[in-house]
Write a protein that binds this DNA or RNA. Structure first.
Lengths: 229, 229
DNA sequence: GATAAAATATGATTTTAGTCAGTTTTCCAA
DNA sequence: TTGGAAAACTGACTAAAATCATATTTTATC
């Protein structure tokens, strides 16, 4: 058992860093690490979660099924992010499904350790609260984008977002590779519309593609487009 | 000074109920009550808030200005709701503006009392956390609705939402009266489109109107419409 | 390496919603 | 009470995006 939370760098990025040594030890002793293949499900919408998932490696999409049968991707979670927090805290079943977008390593942490610490260590609780406050702000921004921006603007914004938050490889392609359908589900549009816009962006030199990989070719122009030209 | 938080029934609906007697006393001593006229602003997007606002009476719209110059209403806050929490907790300036939709009574509570309690009373912090978790879930739902439902469905849903959350008067009209423009800004559409849909709903007997008041005439049909008929 | 299945792409068409222009109604404030 | 502004409404037109159909490419699998 060499993978101790105490040594896990990922912890730096989430609320676990506010835990005391003892609390962290308890979490580390109770956690289990899982390898998850691309495309595999981590948890489902409506499922009762008895713990949270801490992402060590890879990226997961968090989505919600809409009445018309389409998935809307609400958030992408990568290294350091904790999934399922909201449901555990609210003591509700999950409102989102989590599916791996790339091969992943995640740690499952049973909720007891988390919930106990929430009630005993205010620093930890405040830290979790801050994170949630941040998520809420982001959600507000998404609402505004969804309702006020055109599909073209949202696609452009999605690429910029992916670049900023998940980085690029040496050749300048986005590190997270999503299928066209997933991109459409992030943006909230039809897959065909999304593909068309990608072609258009490519033709105009805003992005470059290589297989399903996408790279930002002209950041300035993309930004101008997002701002409403 | 007869309006003590200790006696305020509004408190039952928000996180303040988890405060101890002493903490509540402190809050009560530091708070100030304000009357706000319909249309008046409570705080602006980008403003640094040095406290939170607890709604005693009336309704406020929380909105965000989009790049194209339109307001998107992200949330409506009524009796018992606390506004500005997110910003105070995250120590950021507000991401939303608050404007009174009806005449209001709000209490301003300086942040010190809140922040201190957050660090000292885990029960309170967890309570706040629960509320925020709930808000976040609602925000996720809004994102999905915005991106996957038609304008017609969103308008129908807005009326049902208003009915459920703010009630109706004796004649069966929604208690919150919003202008057509505000409804459009909740739904994320053009005012004209919104008006057209309202006319259509009225013609089809889904709703009834009286001046700017709107009442639900056929809940079942409205629900069917929201579900995609 | 062949073949089926899935993902990507493109075209034609329809639906939906936004925009612009103008009219009517409502609501205040002088 | 009345004139002027704001809000509500209507119509015509345009633009954006969804849908349907089909072709092509990529990927996985035996």
């Amino acid at each position: 058992m060499k993978n101790r939370c105490e040594n896990c760098i990922v912890r730096q990025f989430n609320s676990l860093r506010a835990m005391s040594k003892e609390e962290l030890k308890r979490v580390s002793d109770s956690k289990t690490t899982k390898s998850i293949k691309k495309g595999q499900s981590i948890f489902e919408e409506g499922e009762k979660l008895n713990g949270v998932f801490c992402v060590r490696e890879g990226v997961s999409k968090l989505s919600k099924l809409s009445a018309n049968g389409k998935d809307q991707i609400v958030k992408l979670a990568s290294k350091g992010e904790v999934m399922g927090q909201r449901s555990v805290i609210a003591e509700e079943s999950s409102n989102l499904s989590a599916v791996a977008v790339s091969d992943m390593e995640v740690c499952f942490i049973p909720k007891e350790g988390i919930v106990d610490t929430l009630h005993k260590n205010p620093d930890f609780t405040v830290e979790v609260l801050r994170h949630m406050a941040h998520d809420l702000r982001e959600a507000d921004d998404v609402i505004v984008n969804m309702s006020q921006k055109s599909v073209k603007q949202r696609v452009a914004e999605a690429f910029l977002y992916l670049g900023e938050n998940f980085g690029e490889d040496k050749e300048g392609y986005l590190s997270v590779t999503l299928s066209r359908e997933d991109i459409a589900n992030v943006v909230g549009t039809a897959t065909e519309s999304c593909i068309r816009i990608i072609s258009e962006f490519k033709k105009k030199g805003l992005i470059k593609t290589s297989g399903k990989k996408i790279g930002i070719a002209n950041e300035k122009k993309l930004r101008d487009l997002v701002e409403g030209f």
